[in-house]
Design a protein around this nucleic acid. Structure first.
Length: 726
DNA sequence: GTGGCCCCTGTTTTT
DNA sequence: CAGGGGCCAC
C-alpha cells in the first residue's frame, strides 16, 4: 500500500514528519482529515508503531468513527488498541478505568447541560439564594468557564460580590455532583488533568503508552484540553496538532485559538506546515471566503487557492421575510435538483436553531423531505430524558438528579409535600433515597411519614428495587422494555394527540438505538450505552448519504461540505449575532463563523437576508439590516441584480418600498379556496386522501389533507399538484 | 396534596 | 411557539 499516493508536497511532509512536535495550519478543504488518517496509517504501516501507542483526538464522535473506518480499510485490520475519540470520550474512558484513584465509582453518571442546570438550581436553593439575582444559567456558565480553565472551587478567586456568591454555589454544586456520583462534561477534562497531576506514576504510564499523539481542530481546544495534551506528550514530544485559527468558533465553550501560537512557544522545535491548497471549492467561493476573513486582525495571513475553475458567481438575495426566504431556498433547491444536483448535496445553514422552523414549514408545504440536525436534540427530548433517567437510576441508584426527574413520572402521587416528608426523614437518618424507599417496603419499619406518603413511596421502592434487580439479568433492550411496561409509559406518553404520537415514535427510536447497541452482557451493555448517549452530539447522527437536503446550524456545519450551501439570515443581529456586538473578540468569532459557513460550499453559495423577520411568534417583527459581512464581498463575485443593491445603502429605502408594496399587493389579491372540507383528492406522491381543512392565507390556499397512506399533511395548493378524485 | 391549565417570559452557538 | 412557574379545581 502506498501511503503517499495523491498527497501534495505539504500534506506528504505532514504525514511523514513522525518524530517531534508538528503544527499543521490547515485551511478549509485542504485535506487535513486525509493527512491525519494517512499519518496514523503511516505510523502503523510504515514505521511499525503499535496502534496501542497512538492517541488520536477528533472533534466529534462521527469524525472518529469515519477515521477508524478509513484506517481499517487502509490497514486491513482491526485497530481496537488504537485510542481514537473525542477529548470527552477519551477522558471518560480513562476515568472509568482509573476509578479507584478518583472520588467516583466506575459507574459514575455523566451530566449534560440540562442536568448541570438542575444541579446548579439545587445548589442555589440549598444556599437560600434568590434565583432572580443568581440565575442558574449565569452560574452554570461561570462554573463551566472555571473548569475549562482548570480552576477548581478552592482555587476560584472571586473579584466581585456576585462572584463571591458564585464561588459558594460552585463549591456546593461540586458537592452535589459528588453525592450523586456524577461528573459534568467539563469535569471529564478537569478530573483527568487532576488525576494525572496528582499521580506521577500513572501519568508516566500513560506517557509511555501514548508515544504518538494527534489532535484535530486544535484551534478549538481549551486550557484543560491543552494541558492534557501537554502532560501526555511531555515525554515523547511527538505531538501532532492540526488546526486553523480562522475556523475557531467555540470561544463560548472556553476554546482559545491562541493555543495555536502557544503551541509554538511550548514546543520551540516544532515544525510548522501550512496547507493552503483547497480541494473543495471553486475559486469564486474561495475569493468570497478570503474577502470575509482577511479583515480579521492579528491573523497569520493565509490565502486559499484552488487549481480548479472559477465557478459560478454566488447569489446574494434579499427576501421579504423568513417565510419568503424559506420558500426561496426550497424553490432554488428544487431547481438545482432539476438541473442534476443531488438533494443530499444541498445544505441550509443558520446562526440559531430557532431559524429552522420557517425552513421546515417551507419544505413541508412543498411536500419535500429534509433532514434536520439538532434543533430539539433527540437526547434532550423529554420522553428520551425520562427513559434515560430510569436507566441511570437503575445503573446508579445514587444519581439523585435523575431520580428527581422521574420520581413522579408518570404521575404516581409523589408531589412536593411527599418529597419534603421523605427528605426530612432520610436526611436526618443519613439515608440515600434508594435505601430509604427500600426500607419503607418493610411493613414493620417505623418512619415519620403520613400513611399516604408512605404508601406511594413504598410503591416506588418496589418498582425501583425490581428494576435494579433486573439490571444484571436482562440485556439492555429488555431492561428498557421492562421500564416501559412497569411504568406504563406508553399510556403516559401516548395521549391521543399528534404530539403524543411523535413522542412515542421517539421512544421507539430510542428502543431501536438500544437494540442496535450490540449484544453485550447486561450490566456492561447498560453502562456503555449510557456513556455513549451522554457523549453523542447531533452531527454524530447525521446520515450523510440520506438523499435529502440538510438543515443545520453554522456551528454544526464545521468539517462538512456540500455542493450547494444556503446561508440564511445574513443580517445584523443574527450574523453577527446581537449578543456579540459589544465585544470585539466575539464579533471576530462571528466573522469566522461566517467564513466556516462559506467554505462548506463546493460549487454554489447563496447568502440570503430578509427585509423583516418575526421573532417569537408574531409578537416581535423587526426590520432588518443586511449583515456587515456582505458588504465585504467584491461585487464582481456576486450574481444578478442584487449585487448593486447590497452595496448601495441609499437604495435600500426604495427597495424596501418595492418589496413591501409588492408583498402587500400579492397578499391583497383575492384567492378563492378551491377545496373544502370533505373533498376527496389525489396527490402524485402521497396518493389519495380527504381534505380536513382549508384556508386562504398569504395569497395562497393552504389545505390539510389526511392521506390514506402517509397520514396528515399540510400543503399549499399553488405548489402541491392536488387534483379532485371522483 | 396533586395535577391540569393558563399565562408569562424570552431566544446563540455545544462536547 | 415552548418551557416554566403560578393558580385553581379535584
Amino acid at each position: 500500500m502506498d501511503w503517499t499516493e495523491d498527497l501534495n508536497a505539504a500534506q506528504l511532509e505532514a504525514v511523514e514528519a513522525t518524530e517531534g512536535p508538528v503544527l499543521v495550519l490547515a485551511g478549509p478543504g485542504s485535506g487535513k482529515t486525509r493527512v491525519l488518517t494517512c499519518r496514523v496509517a503511516f505510523l502503523v504501516g510504515e514505521r511499525g508503531v503499535a496502534p496501542w501507542h497512538i492517541l488520536a483526538v477528533t472533534f466529534t464522535n462521527k469524525a472518529a468513527r469515519e477515521m477508524r473506518g478509513r484506517l481499517e480499510l487502509l490497514l486491513g485490520e482491526q485497530l481496537q488498541r488504537l485510542t481514537l475519540g473525542t477529548f470527552h470520550a477519551t477522558c471518560a474512558r480513562i476515568l472509568r478505568g482509573e476509578a479507584e484513584h478518583t472520588p467516583f465509582s466506575r459507574d459514575y453518571v455523566i451530566y449534560d447541560s440540562s442536568d448541570q442546570l438542575a444541579a446548579v438550581a439545587q445548589a442555589v436553593a440549598e444556599l437560600n439564594l434568590d434565583e432572580k439575582r443568581y440565575q442558574p444559567q449565569a452560574l452554570r456558565a461561570v462554573i463551566s468557564r472555571a473548569k475549562n480553565e482548570l480552576i477548581g472551587p478552592d482555587e476560584y478567586r472571586p473579584q466581585t460580590y456576585w462572584e463571591e456568591v458564585a464561588s459558594r454555589v460552585y463549591a456546593r454544586y461540586q458537592d452535589i455532583l459528588r453525592v450523586n456520583d456524577a461528573l459534568d462534561f467539563d469535569d471529564l477534562l478537569m478530573a483527568t488533568v487532576q488525576l494525572f497531576r496528582h499521580n506521577e506514576g500513572m501519568l508516566a504510564r500513560y506517557q509511555q503508552r501514548y508515544q504518538y499523539i494527534l489532535v484535530d481542530e486544535w484551534q478549538d481546544t481549551n486550557v484543560a484540553q491543552y494541558e492534557l495534551v501537554k502532560l501526555l506528550g511531555a515525554r515523547h514530544r511527538n505531538v501532532f496538532v492540526v488546526g486553523d485559527p480562522d475556523q475557531s468558533i467555540y470561544r463560548f465553550r472556553g476554546a482559545d485559538y491562541r493555543n495555536v501560537h502557544r503551541f509554538e512557544d511550548d514546543y520551540p522545535e516544532a515544525r510548522v506546515i501550512l496547507l493552503e491548497r483547497n480541494y473543495r471549492s471553486t475559486q469564486t467561493v474561495l475569493d468570497v471566503a478570503n474577502a470575509i476573513i482577511s479583515p480579521s486582525p492579528n491573523r497569520h495571513p493565509k490565502v486559499l487557492y484552488t487549481q480548479e475553475e472559477a465557478g459560478a458567481p454566488i447569489v446574494v438575495q434579499e427576501l421579504y421575510d423568513e417565510d419568503e426566504e424559506a420558500s426561496f431556498v426550497v424553490e432554488e433547491i428544487a431547481q438545482l435538483v432539476a438541473r442534476g444536483y443531488n438533494p443530499g448535496e444541498c445544505a441550509v445553514m443558520y446562526r440559531t436553531n430557532a431559524q429552522s422552523r420557517a425552513l421546515e414549514d417551507a419544505f413541508i408545504r412543498r411536500g419535500l423531505p429534509y433532514h434536520l440536525v439538532g434543533a430539539t436534540r433527540f437526547y434532550a427530548r423529554r420522553e428520551i430524558k425520562d427513559l434515560l433517567a430510569y436507566l441511570r437510576i437503575i445503573h446508579n441508584p445514587y444519581d439523585g438528579l435523575s431520580l428527581e426527574r422521574v420520581m413522579n413520572v408518570p404521575p404516581r402521587g409523589i408531589g412536593p409535600r411527599t418529597r419534603h416528608e421523605l427528605d426530612e426523614w432520610r436526611l436526618a437518618e443519613g439515608l440515600a433515597t434508594y435505601d430509604a424507599v427500600q426500607l419503607l417496603r418493610e411493613n414493620d419499619f417505623e418512619a415519620p411519614l403520613s400513611g399516604r406518603s408512605r404508601k406511594v413511596l413504598a410503591d416506588l421502592g418496589a418498582l425501583w428495587g425490581e428494576l435494579v434487580n433486573a439490571r444484571s439479568m436482562l440485556p439492555l433492550p429488555r431492561l428498557l422494555d421492562l421500564v416501559m411496561e412497569r411504568t406504563d409509559y406508553e399510556a403516559h406518553i401516548r395521549d391521543g394527540t399528534e404530539e403524543g404520537e411523535e413522542r412515542w415514535a421517539n421512544v421507539m427510536e430510542l428502543r431501536a438505538v438500544a437494540h442496535a447497541h450490540g449484544d453485550l452482557p447486561p450490566e456492561e451493555g447498560l453502562s456503555s450505552f449510557l456513556e455513549k448517549v451522554a457523549l453523542v452530539s447531533d452531527v454524530d447522527d447525521l446520515q450523510e448519504q440520506a438523499d435529502v437536503p440538510t438543515l443545520l446550524t453554522l456551528h454544526m456545519a464545521k468539517g462538512l461540505e456540500f455542493q450547494a450551501v444556503f446561508m440564511v439570515g445574513m443580517e445584523e443581529g443574527l450574523l453577527p449575532h446581537s449578543r456579540s456586538l459589544e465585544d470585539p473578540e466575539q464579533l471576530e468569532e462571528e466573522r469566522r463563523l461566517c467564513y466556516v459557513g462559506i467554505t462548506r460550499a463546493k460549487e454554489r453559495l447563496y447568502l440570503l437576508y430578509t427585509f423583516r423577520r418575526a421573532f417569537f411568534g408574531d409578537s416581535g417583527s423587526d426590520v432588518r439590516l443586511p449583515s456587515r459581512f456582505l458588504s465585504e464581498i467584491p461585487p464582481e463575485l456576486i450574481e444578478g441584480r442584487e449585487k448593486e443593491l447590497a452595496h448601495a445603502p441609499a437604495d435600500r429605502e426604495a427597495r424596501r418600498y418595492r418589496l413591501q408594496t409588492q408583498w402587500a399587493q400579492e397578499a391583497e389579491e383575492p384567492v378563492m379556496a378551491q377545496f373544502s372540507v370533505g373533498d376527496r383528492v389525489r396527490h402524485p406522491a402521497f396518493g389519495s386522501g380527504i381534505v380536513m381543512d382549508s384556508r386562504v392565507s398569504s395569497g395562497d390556499e393552504e389545505v390539510v389533507v389526511a392521506f390514506e397512506e402517509v397520514g396528515i399533511k399540510r400543503l399549499l395548493v399553488s405548489l402541491a399538484k392536488l387534483e379532485f378524485r371522483h
